[in-house]
């Protein structure tokens, strides 16, 4: 079964505002997650500049030997990315869905401060459900 290892959300200045891992594979300590987040932020920005095609929005998919990294950037510059087992399908869909949850349960929450770490109970609950549903869908195939 293809699995999701972890999910990151980084704000427009490269700070990690949400991190969640699923299962023990690929788990990292807090410092490493922060490092990955800011590293990815910079790489993403550089890739836009280096791209041979014009109108490039940055890296969407990074494929490595041991993992795939799918990234989605919203219009405001918030980046969502999932690290998953190589060859995991339909990650774009999942990222879009996570973005939807973010706009609903984080941005519409009066107690959330923009660009700050996300601590919203409803977001956690719905995210867990979304990832689980995704897994169920993968199992069914």
């Amino acid at each position: 079964m293809a699995a999701i290892y972890s999910l990151y959300i980084i704000n427009k200045s490269g700070g990690l505002i949400y991190y969640k891992d699923y299962g023990s594979a690929g788990r990292m300590d807090t410092n490493d997650t922060l490092r990955v987040a800011s590293l990815w932020h910079s790489m993403h920005a550089i890739s836009q500049q280096l791209s041979p095609v014009s109108g490039c929005f940055g890296i969407e998919l990074l494929q490595a030997d041991t993992f795939d990294l799918n990234c989605f950037q919203s219009l405001t510059g918030t980046k969502f990315f999932v690290v998953s087992e190589p060859g995991t399908q339909h990650m774009e869909g999942l990222l879009k869905h996570i973005y939807e949850l973010y706009t609903d349960y984080v941005l519409k929450n009066p107690f959330y401060e923009m660009e700050m770490p996300i601590r919203c109970e409803l977001f956690d609950i719905n995210l867990t459900q979304a990832v689980q549903k995704d897994r169920v869908a993968l199992l069914a195939r």
Partner: peptide, 9 residues
């Protein structure tokens, strides 16, 4: 519907 109350409130 979209509101999560922080623990400290």
């Amino acid at each position: 519907r979209f509101i999560s109350i922080p623990k400290d409130m």
